[in-house]
Structures are given as C-alpha cells and as structure tokens.
Design a protein around this nucleic acid. Structure first.
Lengths: 331, 331
DNA sequence: TTGTACGCGTTATCAA
DNA sequence: TTGATAACGCGTACAA
C-alpha cells in the first residue's frame, strides 16, 4: 500500500495532525518539526491520497470540460487553452465529448456532477434540447457552470461570449464597402454562435439595403466535399453571388476552392480564424472569435469563484470579434 | 449535504451493508428488499459519493491522457478517439497537456500518478529526457502505462505503434517508381515517430540507390511560414529536388504552396492524413498512421487489463501505415 | 505548539 | 439473507 500521513507521523514521532498541518501549510507548526516532517515526506516519497482528501473537502480540484467534439480544430484549441489556464491554478481537467448535440446529452452532465467536479465548463452548444438544458440548469444550482459561447440566463451559470453578431455585421459592411452586393452565406447549424452569426449577417444585409434572396443563405453538412458540391449546385443553378461568407473556416476552404474552379475569383471570408484559413490557397480572411480571451475569462471565473465568492464574479463576459485579413479579402 | 447510504438505510429499515450490496449488485439480497432499496434510492435522488468509493477501492475509473498539445489537430483527433472509446467502458478521461517536450515534464507524470488514475495513456513523445523517462518507467510499476507511438520496453508498459518506418520506405519507393530522384524530406523533431519516419526515408533512399545529399533533409519549425521560407531558401540556393515528403501534413501544405509559387509542380506527400491535407490545393497525398486503430488498441488494453489481467494483454501492438492518395501524388 | 478523536461515505469482513 | 463494524487516508475541532 501507499505511504500515508500515519507512516510519516510515526517516523517523525509526531501526530498525524501535525503532519496534516505541514501538509496544508496553514496552521502554525514549529520550524523545526516542519522541516523534519518535510524531509521524511520527501524521503519516503509521500503522496497525499486525493480520495481521502476529497472525501473531507468534497473537492478534488477537477474541472469538467464538455464540448461536442475535441477532434474539431476549434474545440481542440479551446480545450488546450482551458487546460493550460486551469493547470496553472492547480486544477485538473476532465474531458467529455458529447459527440454532437443529439438532444439526449444529459447523461454527460449528470456523469460530471456525479463525479463531483468543482465546476463545469461547456464550449459551444452541446446542450439545446429542453430536457438537457433543464438538467444543466439544475446542476448549476449545485456546482458552478461556465458556458463559453452559450447563454442560458440562469442562477449560478456564468456566460462568456464573443459578440459574433456585430462581428458578422461588420463583415457584411466591409464587403458592401468593396462593392459586393450578392453575398452568399454558408452555415452548418444553429448553435448559439451559429444563430448570432446568421442574425448578424441578415441584419447587416438589411441595414445596408442589400438584396436578400433566400437562395443566398445556404446550409451544408460539415465537410469539405459537401460544401464544394453546394457551390457546384448553386453555380449550375445560375445563382449569382459576388462574395462568400461562411460560419466556419472549413466551409470557406471548400467554397473558395469550388468557386475558383468555376472561375469565380471573389472575396471569401470564414469564421474562427483557425489554421485551416492559413492552409487554404489563397489564404482566407477570417472572423476571429477571440477564443483566447474567452477561455482566459472562463478560467478566471473558475478561480475567482473559489477565492472571492459567487457575487464577485461577472455573470456575463463579452468580447468583440476581430476580422483577421488575409489574401481572400482585404478592406 | 448529499444523500448517503445511511439515509437510504434508515428510510428502508435496513443496514448500510444491505444498501451497499444492492448498490454493487454483486452479493445476494432478497428480491423484496432490493426492490425497496432501489425505489427509495430513486425517490431520494441518491448518488454514490465517488470519493468515498475511491477511498475504499483506490480507483475512480479515470484514465490519464498525456500529450504535448491538444490544440494540434493530430493529438486532438487522438484524444477524441480515446475519450469516445474509454467512455463506452465507463472510464473518464483526465487530460494533461505538457506543452512541448521540454525535458522537464516529469511533474505531469507524478501529478497524474498522484491523482491515482487507473492508467496513463501517452500520445506521441511527451517525455524523452532521461529523468522524465525514468520517472515514467517507475510510475509504470504502480499503474499501467500505455504509450501510443512510443516504446520504452519496460515492465507494465504497453506500447501501441504504427510502423511508419516501413510506410515511409514505401513512399520513397513509390516516388522513385515515378522517376523522382532528388526527394526533399522536411521534418520537425525527432520524436519516436519522427525518428522512425526519417529512418525509413533514409533507408528507402539507400536501398534504391537514390542520391542522398545532406541538403535534401531539412528541419523546420512547426509553422506554415517557416516551411515556406525554407523552400524559398532552398530554391534560392539552387538546391535541386523533384519531390517533397514531410513528416506532417502542415509542412506539406507550406512546402507545396511555396514550391508552386516557384513553378515547381512536383509530387508532395505529407503525414498523418489530417484535414489539413484536404484543405490544401491541390489536395495532399498523405501517409496515414492509422490513429483510429492505435487508439482503439489502447482502449482495449485498458479494459482488458482490468478484466483479464496483465498477462493476457499484448505488450506491443503494431499496425501498418497506409498511403492515402490525393491530387498531389498518385501511384 | 502539539495530540486526540471524530467525521467524511463506501466497501469488505466477519457474525448472526 | 442480513447486520455490526472495521478499514480507507485525511482534515479539523477541541483539548492539552
């Protein structure tokens, strides 16, 4: 079996309480015994048992992170940023991949809650069905829930978002400013982020009095080939467009490639400013949703909740999006 | 506070032992009391405390997964596959991002071990310094360590690898078969995988009696711009090459783009068969290292270790690589 | 400054 | 088939 504080105490001729005290640094222990205990700990290779500690404190310094798919480059980046930030504050990360928002992802929430994580951070929109959302809100009553790019307006839920709606409006304005009239918008799903981007696009079109035809707003599966096929169909159907905006870089890659194949050398703008935008030829201009800021804010909330308390923490944190210009479009 | 088995026991007029028994299903309990206990559990919304359980069993069904960077598309994919597979077997995943192989990553190992994870899975080469490797091997004596694309040949360490060496030899052969003589190889670091690919490349060159010049093997930082700059320098320096092979798709993207800029329409082959290969124009042929198989095997090892026992589990599992052909090269 | 004793929620080992 | 009780390792009042 493992070394326990009892072993240390025995070897040091002190009580377990004393050992526990030097372990937690807090209470007052004579410098002499502290040194001795620390020395013996190191010698014996003592490691505190996290279960026992957790049992008393009801905390194991683990944060649950939930997203639909870490294999997706965007979520992967977010998880990476969160992990780095949390680790700096001595939190571990338990990862949960829901697969996709099936409407029956509640089990992931209760699993996490059952494991007694110290907080839950969701990225994107892993939960949208009524039952899932309800469960999430109930869970929030017991442990803090931080949502990145979602907002449920519930007690003990902390929302961190990027204002992609206004960002998208600016994109439309920038394109219009260059003379584009018929902007094609390609998206995949109506997540929180997806809805706001689409709203922003529509609003931009409206405010600038650009022609808005239904055929200029298209939905597509999340693959390159589907997106290319979509462009092929539109061209074949004589749908006119002089610019393309997409809700994710991946669609922009496919759309741009297909457009160029048809001789359409038009502005293309993606979203998320991922490595994919840099891999495309020409490189893609992309609307950056400031993931670094979002994740840093989420980490901040976690730490401040434990140090300061629930009231000292903002329930909503919002950042502006930023257009990162590359070859596919410059203002 | 939460509901405990004491509460359930009291309400059912039975002892906690009985409650514990129905909880674990194992021991014999009369159907009548079992039903009653289960009913009350549901009524009161009882959730077993994982810490207390962990304290007794010294296990919380958590697997530690360690890699250098989840933000990297390859590791992200691996983590995703592992998470999915492990969750199906009711394991949770604790993620640890070392950042890069600094030679001082031992703390991540002891952290994991200290958290009493049930096993550790490493992806790639997060540990290579002597001290880190020693620590990893020592840790393996206490908890199983499964290494994906690494091999330390130590007791209680289970290695799952892809034979990229032979895969790379085949790549060279395929290029030579098409008449390529001066193949440029671009890599980043000498991880386990990196070493084997480079070895395979060298061996392929040698066995086919192709000219091997030092300047045809180049190292580069892991960025697109650096890789493009590398090609620019080589071209400016009149280094002749008629094909490019790279240790990762990201380098292939940059190299191909730069080469095309210089009018060099030559075969380009990447590694890992990631989405990046599909985003490039032309799309990139890539050596797939069968990550899906590797991760499935790792998950298998974890589950079989607990069910069957250490001796029933293979200490080394090897898969073949596979060349996935796209526009940048076809055999 | 230090030590004693109890609680945390479960599992497991005895008896009954 | 059940029940009482001892671990499991740590934190912490309370006492000394």
């Amino acid at each position: 079996m493992n070394i326990t504080i009892y072993d240390i105490a025995q070897k040091c001729h002190v009580s377990i309480a004393t050992v526990s005290r030097v372990l937690n640094g807090s209470s007052r222990v004579s410098e002499k015994t502290r040194a001795k205990v620390l020395k013996v700990m190191k010698e014996m290779g003592y490691k505190p048992n996290p279960f026992a500690r957790g049992l008393g404190l009801d905390s194991m310094k683990i944060i649950g992170v939930i997203c639909t798919d870490v294999a997706d480059i965007f979520y992967a980046h977010a998880v990476s940023l969160l992990e780095d930030g949390l680790r700096k504050h001595h939190f571990d990360v338990m990862l949960s991949n829901t697969g996709s928002d099936t409407g029956h992802n509640g089990k992931y929430i209760s699993d996490m809650a059952g494991k007694h994580v110290d907080a839950i951070i969701t990225i994107g929109t892993p939960f949208s069905s009524e039952s899932d959302v309800r469960l999430l809100c109930e869970t929030a009553r017991q442990i803090p829930v931080i949502t990145i790019n979602s907002d449920y307006h519930q007690p003990r839920m902390y929302s961190v978002v990027c204002n992609e709606r206004d960002g998208m409006k600016d994109v439309v304005a920038a394109l219009a400013n260059k003379g584009c009239q018929h902007i094609l918008y390609i998206y995949n799903s109506l997540t929180y982020s997806g809805r706001h981007k689409l709203d922003g696009f529509r609003q931009g079109i409206k405010e600038l009095n650009l022609p808005h035809k239904a055929e200029l707003i298209q939905q597509t599966p999340r693959t390159l080939t589907d997106t290319e096929a979509l462009i092929d169909r539109l061209v074949a159907g004589n749908v006119d467009f002089d610019a393309i905006v997409t809700s994710d870089d991946i669609f922009a890659v496919g759309a741009q490639r297909a457009a160029l194949r048809h001789g359409l050398d038009i502005p293309v703008i993606g979203c998320n400013n991922s490595i994919l935008a840099e891999c495309a030829t020409p490189t893609l201009t992309s609307l950056d949703n400031k993931l670094t800021n979002l994740c840093a804010a989420a980490v901040n909330i976690v730490t401040e909740l434990t140090t300061k308390g629930a009231d000292a923490v903002p329930i909503r944190t919002e950042f502006n999006a930023e257009l990162v210009e590359r070859e596919s479009f410059t203002t």
